[in-house]
């Protein structure tokens, strides 16, 4: 069935709903909204949507309940969590349930657009023909914050961060990339790279781990194509020294390639 609306926003703050509409409607997307978990679930179940934007702080239930229930009801429906920095940690844990991405409030229009458009493109591509699968305990090759970002932890304790499978080919025409300076500390879930495309979409790559940035891929700004053609090797983003490895690994999923 053809959906009546493209996007369902579940948020109890009118200004947030209005802001999302102001951002998405001009991009040609139709938007419906729900103020509670119950309303959101019934709308998502009865009407077809292409994407759900979900807040994590809702009046009747926690947004986490909404997300897990949605995943159960409509596993093919991509979810983008929209949440404040105060609940960043819950947002990180949501990746394990299979949400596509999260957008931190307050967001710029480009940030919301970036996540939404990438999700829709990924969805439209008929998705997972990819060669990655969740690993068992002994064949883990890398960890991922869902399919959003990947990190390889070397025996020395050093970690190399690359894009997850939801980025390459789905970012539109990339224009530039912003990377952190080496020496700075980045926290798990905070932005570790921003990729901006010609349409003004901002694709934020979240840091998979907390630690100091030791090195950034200096080739990237001059050669953005690497992100599409060799994202997991030459298109690496940052090399970092994780400091909370043990406790943070529990939010990540182990993956292997075939």
């Amino acid at each position: 069935m053809a959906p009546k609306h493209d996007i369902l926003i579940v948020d109890d703050e009118p200004i947030v709903v209005l802001s999302a509409q102001r951002t998405l409607v001009p991009a040609g997307l139709s938007v419906d909204h729900a103020g509670t978990v119950a309303e959101g679930l019934s709308k998502a179940d009865s009407q077809g949507f292409n994407l759900v934007l979900a807040d994590l702080m809702l009046p009747d239930h926690s947004g986490f309940d909404l997300v897990t229930e949605l995943r159960r009801l409509r596993p093919e429906l991509p979810i983008v969590v929209v949440t404040g920095y105060a609940t960043l940690e819950s947002a990180i844990t949501c990746f394990k349930t299979g949400v596509f991405d999260f957008v931190a409030k307050p967001f710029e229009t480009g940030e919301l657009l970036g996540s939404v458009q990438r999700a829709l493109r990924f969805q439209a591509a008929g998705k997972t023909s990819e060669s990655h699968f969740e690993a068992t305990d002994n064949n883990i090759e890398y960890y991922g914050l869902g399919k959003h970002v990947q990190v390889r932890v070397q025996p020395s304790g050093l970690a190399v961060v690359t894009l997850g499978v939801t980025f390459p080919h789905f970012m539109g025409k990339t224009l530039r990339i912003e990377l952190p300076e080496s020496g700075t500390t980045i926290l798990q879930g905070n932005a570790c790279a921003k990729i901006i495309n010609r349409e003004g979409e901002i694709h934020i790559v979240r840091a998979p781990l907390t630690g100091s940035v030791l090195e950034i891929n200096s080739q990237l700004p001059g050669n953005m194509k690497l992100l599409d053609i060799d994202p997991f090797n030459r298109g690496w983003l940052v090399r970092m020294a994780p400091t909370q490895l043990k406790s943070e690994l529990q939010h990540l999923t182990g993956f292997a390639r075939c």
Partner: peptide, 12 residues
């Protein structure tokens, strides 16, 4: 966070 979202979204 919420009011800032409004300001940022509308102004941008």
């Amino acid at each position: 966070n919420n009011p800032l979202t409004g300001v940022l979204a509308y102004s941008s």
